[in-house]
Design a protein around this nucleic acid. Structure first.
Length: 795
RNA sequence: GGGCCUGUGGUCUAGUGGUAUGACGCGACCUUUACAAGGUCGAGGUCGGCGGUUCAAUUCCGCCCAGGCCCACCA
């Protein structure tokens, strides 16, 4: 049978949309299960990681729906902020500074809309049971209003403050960034040894990788235990090319005597240490770098240059003047901006911050109230929280993003916040309500926009339409599940927890499920630069969405999974097997009609397989309840293939083709029950194929309009018969042994056997099964005796 | 340097206080009335290493090694 999986998938995706199969009914009386789905950053493509993670999330959604929950599974696009603007700049080969703010925003919105449409199509192709009517965007009016309201609320709680502060700055993006946006990068560089003179003529040298910051040098630090430098402490050292400016030598435990010359010069600001040292030594701040990355007049001879050129120039000049002792090539790690890989600089700027460093302990304790799956991922969050050193800088000096609802009084410079009724608002285009405290009515708008995570951290509030003050929010908050990747625990999960604790005074979710990553076949991250990216569409095209979904169900939750095409092949075979087995069962069960289970006379294999089915349903339900879907999919698959198809079906064929109507009816009933309930358990994983079979082959068993709205089989403890399972397993082994005998004799499996001799631990227990074994293996006569399990045949 | 995870036949993996699951690959046989995109059978593992607890450890504990992730540092 030639299966056109594509045709089937497209057909059912259309049908589900038409039938509104996954529609969230706010008024439903069922208990709710709400998912705070991750809005993917708009980029135009769905990558393998998306396919993987969203499918895992969908397993949960589909399962919960079958368990009788009204499932809230929305979809969002993250098209807000810096990442989006950078994506558009890169794709269209433009820079924001060449446009007016308005035009730039317009351009970004237009472009992201096109990208969204492409992505929506891809995500729909995965067969996710999402209610697309709940679609949101992190730049939408609702998101804007929510973010701005959040700002006002935090202001009311005195949790935001504004100050001129050393700030991590990306010169390329020309904006402040937060601690979480840093990325390490290993780089080749030069360790430059520079000689200075004290005012009394002694020579002291330092080593640095940032010679260009020399004009900003404000101190020299040496270790107090370093005897070489004892005599320098407190002395004044001349900085070349500064017109005789001098700095003092300080003792500092952090100066490493082993590194360089043991003496280190302190600039404003070379790195985060310098910021701390400023506070300790009370030296002046000399800022030489402008916000666009160029050096200013304080940099003297370096004025107008950028870091790279400045470094070259200063080395040349120092060398000419005889200050350079030597240069050593080194490899060191520098902080870069994760979005554009540019070196960050530290400079001071007026910024808004969310104050939360005082609450670190509370964050650690409260986040314990969510169940973390897998559990160890919570430790990553704790690790992050404990390492926090800066309050959250939420100002971004960009065009594209959600504006601060803030103006400043022209007279007294005090910030004036928007009134709640004005939200969402762009202060560039509107005026505040009322006057400033000082009586002035003249204001300048805040030009900065909010950090994109300031908005993304409000997805539960956006989803529940918190700012519209309706009943939905109370219904869905706290949400049942937050699925997300481990790479953004410190960003998305953490910031969302922070916001909910501030706004709602409680943790935002009951469960946090952390998915792993889709890696390439060798276990490496998929990335464009490595050229190992496999687009999911390509695999859907080649194998089908259900096959890709099957793959997503293989690993343990939280584990990364290498993408191997052979898994696609085996997934495809699995789907074919489901089709074929269903086809057999449906033809075998023709004319079955309605039956009264109590009146059926079951054979031992019936009792065995029914017990196995119920055991499996119990364990699968448990696995799904704890989000361990691979512990459902794998065992059900093995049961279906290795027990039901390979043994049970073979064991009952003689009854299906035979004359005994009682016996046939029982076998038919069991065949149908087992395959149907197995299909139900497969349905969250491979929704298209199971729907197709349910609708085309087992329509009469459907109580709902879709298999995905049927009840999940939970299994019945009373139907579990350990002894039936034990003997059934022995029989399986005996049949396998007899098959082996036929196989080594080069005979087909249906070759008749004159006599079989079976040794078994307890022959008596086997007695009820003898008929089954005889028929299954075409044995005329069978003898059993006590002994170690063995089988011999005479052909 | 701190934290976390992983290490099971050629490859990927399940699992357990009593020597191990499945897939892919490999070999042999079988056109058997659901399925040759199949079936059956088979070969292949001292469950990373070393110690400890135990009658018994792949499973528990400690140390070590290797790989990965996060964080910090690197003048």
């Amino acid at each position: 049978m030639a299966l056109d999986l594509h045709e089937i998938e497209v057909k059912w995706q259309k049908e589900w949309e038409k039938q509104k199969t996954y529609k969230f009914d706010e008024k439903s009386k069922k208990p709710l299960f709400t998912i705070d789905t991750p809005p993917p950053t708009v980029s135009g493509v769905m990558h393998m990681g998306h396919a993987f993670a969203f499918t895992q999330q969908d397993f949960v959604a589909r399962y919960k729906r079958m368990k009788g929950f009204e499932v809230f599974q929305p979809f969002g696009f993250d098209n807000n902020g810096l990442p989006t603007a950078l994506m558009v700049e890169k794709k269209l080969k433009i820079r924001q500074k060449d446009y007016s703010r308005k035009d730039f925003v317009k351009l970004v919105l237009k472009h992201t809309k096109e990208q969204e449409d492409a992505m929506e199509k891809s995500f729909k192709g995965m067969g996710l049971s999402i209610d697309w009517d709940l679609l949101y965007r992190t730049i939408d009016k609702l998101a804007q209003k929510t973010a701005q309201y959040s700002f006002l609320d935090l202001h009311k709680q005195e949790r935001v403050y504004q100050r001129e502060a050393p700030t991590m700055w990306c010169p390329k993006c020309a904006t402040a960034i937060s601690q979480a946006e840093l990325e390490d990068k290993e780089e080749e560089s030069k360790f430059v040894y520079i000689e200075f003179k004290t005012t009394d003529g002694e020579k002291i040298s330092i080593a640095t990788t940032r010679p260009e910051l020399m004009p900003a040098c404000v101190a020299i630090h040496v270790n107090p235990d370093d005897k070489r430098y004892k005599k320098f402490v407190g002395k004044d050292v001349e900085i070349p090319f500064t017109g005789g400016r001098t700095v003092k030598v300080y003792e500092n435990r952090e100066a490493d005597p082993e590194l360089g010359t043991g003496a280190v010069y302190h600039c404003t600001f070379g790195d985060l240490d310098d910021v701390a040292w400023i506070l300790e030594t009370n030296v002046p701040i000399i800022e030489i770098i402008n916000k666009d990355g160029t050096f200013n007049e304080k940099a003297g001879i370096l004025k107008g240059l950028r870091t790279k050129e400045a470094r070259k120039k200063i080395i040349e000049e120092l060398d000419k003047a005889g200050h350079i002792i030597k240069q050593e090539p080194i490899t060191h790690v520098v902080n870069t901006h994760e979005r554009c890989k540019t070196h960050i600089e530290i400079l001071t700027a007026q910024q808004w911050f969310v104050k939360y460093l005082d609450l670190k302990d509370e964050f650690v304790i409260k986040s314990e109230q969510s169940k973390w799956i897998p559990k160890y991922m919570k430790k990553r969050l704790d690790n992050w929280i404990n390492g926090l050193k800066w309050d959250w800088n939420i100002s971004r000096q960009r065009y594209y993003g959600i504006p601060f609802p803030v103006w400043y009084c022209k007279k007294c410079e005090k910030p004036k916040l928007a009134d709640e009724s004005q939200l969402p608002i762009d202060p560039m285009e509107s005026k505040p309500k009322g006057k400033c405290e000082c009586g002035s009515t003249e204001f300048t708008p805040e030009k900065d926009v909010l950090d994109t995570w300031f908005t993304s951290s409000l997805t539960p509030q956006i989803n529940g339409k918190w700012v519209e003050k309706n009943k939905l929010f109370d219904k869905i908050f706290p949400m049942d599940l937050r699925p997300q990747g481990h790479d953004i625990i410190a960003l998305w999960a953490f910031n969302t927890i922070v916001k909910s604790l501030f706004h709602q005074k409680q943790i935002p979710w009951k469960n946090v499920m952390i998915n792993g990553w889709a890696l390439d076949s060798k276990g490496k991250k998929m990335s464009k630069s490595l050229g190992n990216v496999i687009p999911p569409e390509q695999m859907i095209e080649k194998y089908s969405a259900d096959v890709l979904r099957y793959w997503a169900g293989l690993p343990t939750i939280g584990e990364d999974i290498p993408f191997m095409e052979k898994e696609m092949v085996s997934g495809k075979k699995f789907l074919t097997k489901i089709f074929n087995a269903s086809r057999f069962v449906s033809s075998a069960c023709e004319g079955l009609g309605k039956v009264d289970e109590k009146k059926l006379k079951f054979w031992p294999e019936d009792k065995w397989i029914l017990s196995r089915l119920n055991s499996l349903e119990i364990s699968s339900t448990k696995a799904m309840d704890s989000y361990e879907f691979s512990k459902c999919l794998n065992p059900v698959r093995n049961f279906f293939w290795l027990e039901f198809a390979d043994y049970y079906i073979e064991e009952v064929k003689h009854r299906i083709y035979g004359e005994d109507r009682e016996s046939k009816k029982a076998a038919q009933f069991v065949l149908q029950k087992v395959i149907w309930e197995t299909l139900l358990m497969f349905s969250p994983f491979v929704p298209h194929v199971t729907e197709e079979i349910a609708q085309s082959t087992f329509k009469s068993l459907l109580k709902e309009k879709s298999i995905h709205l049927e009840k999940w089989p939970e299994g019945n403890k009373k139907a579990v018969d350990p002894e039936a399972e034990e003997v059934g397993a022995i029989v399986t082994k005996i049949i396998s042994l007899i098959r082996k005998e036929k196989s080594v004799s080069g005979k087909p499996l249906n070759a008749p056997v004159k006599k079989a001799t079976v040794k078994v631990g307890d022959p008596e227990k086997l007695t009820p099964w003898l008929e089954t074994i005889k028929h299954t293996m075409k044995i005329e006569k069978i003898e059993t005796s006590k002994g170690e399990l063995a089988a011999a045949i005479e052909l």
